[in-house]
């Protein structure tokens, strides 16, 4: 991933920043220019809650090259306590520990490295609470 793209997404990846529609209150992660709920173009800055719930989960066993050494790793769709859904890894756990409905918290981790010489890509993941 080129560094300009990486830097642009930092507020979301590093700090879970989201946007809240001033008109209808819908939350967007990442922030958008137009509200998909009501069409409004005005937003307040907000953040995802630090904890959430697993809505579905899987173990990735065949991964793209950047993630190949990490297999198997767990991916879940998590709904934050303030109602925003994200796709995220659930780390430091065994496959059998995962269940729909379990609580997780967001943590800061390394996602992958661009080989031995490229940039190191960080962002959010989750662990079971």
């Amino acid at each position: 991933m080129p560094s300009p793209t990486y830097r642009r997404e930092m507020p979301q990846r590093y700090r879970l920043e989201a946007a809240k529609c001033k008109k209808c209150g819908k939350l967007f992660f990442p922030p958008r220019l137009v509200c998909a709920g009501c069409g409004s173009k005005e937003f307040d800055k907000t953040k995802l809650s630090e904890t959430g719930t697993i809505l579905s989960h899987t173990m990735i066993r065949v991964a793209p090259a950047d993630f190949a050494t990490q297999v198997p790793y767990a991916i879940a769709i998590v709904e934050s306590d303030n109602g925003v859904r994200v796709t995220t890894q659930v780390v430091d756990c065994k496959p059998e520990d995962l269940e729909i409905g379990k609580k997780v918290k967001f943590i800061f981790r390394k996602l992958y490295e661009e080989g031995h010489t490229g940039i190191i890509c960080y962002g959010y993941k989750t662990v079971l609470v």
Binding site: V91, R109, K110, Y122, K125
Partner: peptide, 16 residues
Amino acid sequence: PGMDEDTITISVEAAK
């Protein structure tokens, strides 16, 4: 450290 942990991630979690 987990494969996705390094001085930076440890520092962030400790600082939080």
